[in-house]
Design a protein around this nucleic acid. Sequence first.
DNA 1: TTGTACGCGTTATCAT
DNA 2: ATGATAACGCGTACAA
Lengths: 340, 340
Amino acid sequence: MKPVSLKQIAKELGISITTVSKALNDYPDVSEKTRKKVKDLALKLDYSPNSFALGLRKNESKTLGLIIPDNVHYFFSSVIKGILEVAEKHDYLVIVMQSNEDYELEKKQVDLLISKGVAGILISLSNRTHIFDHLNKIINNGIPLLLFDKISKNVNCSKVFIDDRKSAYEAVSYLIKKGYKRIAHFRGDLNPQNSIDRFLGYKKALADNNIEFDPSLVYLCNNNSDFEDGYNSAKKLISDHQGNVDALFTVNDLLAIGAIKYFNQNNIKIPEQIALMGFSNWFMASVITPALTTVEQNGFEMGKKAADILFHEINCIRKGISYEPQKVVIPTELIFRESS
Amino acid sequence: MKPVSLKQIAKELGISITTVSKALNDYPDVSEKTRKKVKDLALKLDYSPNSFALGLRKNESKTLGLIIPDNVHYFFSSVIKGILEVAEKHDYLVIVMQSNEDYELEKKQVDLLISKGVAGILISLSNRTHIFDHLNKIINNGIPLLLFDKISKNVNCSKVFIDDRKSAYEAVSYLIKKGYKRIAHFRGDLNPQNSIDRFLGYKKALADNNIEFDPSLVYLCNNNSDFEDGYNSAKKLISDHQGNVDALFTVNDLLAIGAIKYFNQNNIKIPEQIALMGFSNWFMASVITPALTTVEQNGFEMGKKAADILFHEINCIRKGISYEPQKVVIPTELIFRESS
DNA sequence: TTGTACGCGTTATCAT
DNA sequence: ATGATAACGCGTACAA
């Protein structure tokens, strides 16, 4: 019922707790005979060290904290998977929390993680986080912090992210190279840097190819229901620019899929009448008809890289070495499919 | 840098550690004046109790363990969200692990969780788990265990799941009521109970409606790549039963979506030539064209209910009350869309 | 009202 | 080769 402790093993074997501890931790100054006795009994009793005592003694928890805005999300799920995989290899556990895009909650969760004594913290910021005291608190507590995907320039810590601007630029440039000239854009919320940067990449691609930027081709989608936003904006787009638009670049795949639904229903041929380019390469993008051309944003790799860096920093701290915050850009890639 | 302890507060105030502890924990036997002094300083220093010490002292961790086969999965993601939401309310943290359908890994993870001293454990079993010693070990350690979705009858603990057989029965009965008679089935792996039960529900619906069961209409899809399995099986289905099949019930939505892709590409009209019924109501089901009629399997509710029950049991243990394992069936619901 | 002493399980230091 | 002791931070029975 109650977990076995060193004490019980010592008692049963008639030796001291110290010796048991040494035997189990392979200290050289304990006889082979004793070591074997101890290890055998420990195995038999299924002993495992009490992690509270260990934590108290060594002040290390073998635990990471992870905060994301939303877990029910293909991209973030992939990131988590990458992080869990690396943590697993290091025999670390991961505490996962969802901020639900709520700044106050995020703050509270950070406090909880700090008080839990986690060895490191990974965060993808909520869209509503504009104050960073809670993040600096992490750093001031000597806990390595890593921001990924939704990052902030105002915090001095390691970051893993994609180059949204460049990726969007490449995506739109591809459309242009294919001959499309009237390219609409469904952009995301005005706040998050991602959505801003993708918009800027779109604009720059137009400019660099001498295509005049037409603000009426840009639609703001921020009702937090991407699929329907995509559907409705597609409808508006067609009624606004009937015949005078030949391509559409959306800030994420879901908007594109909503648009596809509308186009399919209204017999607007993809890509003949309008070409589509998404962003993120959600699983859905590959199974929809027509399959969606999009930008691969490798969440799994991002998760692995993020965890790798964090472990590097954790190790530095353990060894008392100082480290420099790193900024790593995860490469993206155009995925060519049927929609353009 | 280093977290503040009671000791420092005591020193700074020139009083004993005990008094500080009592003041912070609102013991009655400490003067108002002292209490205020202590609380003010604690707030100023941003004191928070060392959770290792607390865990060691009280042997409780305010932490749950959660093991799922795969996080990148709409259904499981939803379950996690439900669990996290309830845990949040109780001020509990959740350690999330992925077994990747690997029995050995699942076992190791259970050991880790036990040694971490988690207050309770939630598991959706891997498909390859047929030995249950590790689960009984949890119970023997006095830790509440709850199985959800992928459960086993051979473990004596609380369980939250859906009635796969009944749900499949209702789904197929609906198809029959609509007039379909030659109903094919894409079934899942032979092992997991879910896939067996859904198959049995399918058979029973046929039997109860005097439709002869035709084994040649059942296709085994177990290549772990549901979308392609669905696509390929649909192809086979058509070549095997051209014109002699009018509906298809798949063990999950992804198979159905693969089939839709094939039917769409080959101009086979849904539902005119073949009607489709999926299972799970993944997000994708609602956005695909045609939208997929399916069985809603409410993961979010399942997660919430699972966590509720677990917390009930954790409370019982804390109070020393005994409790009976519960079995809760989460209701499913037919979602009518365009595919049938 | 305040403080002393002990124990939770572990490991590091120092004696034996 | 082995063991006694202290310390990590906290809560609590008990003494003052």
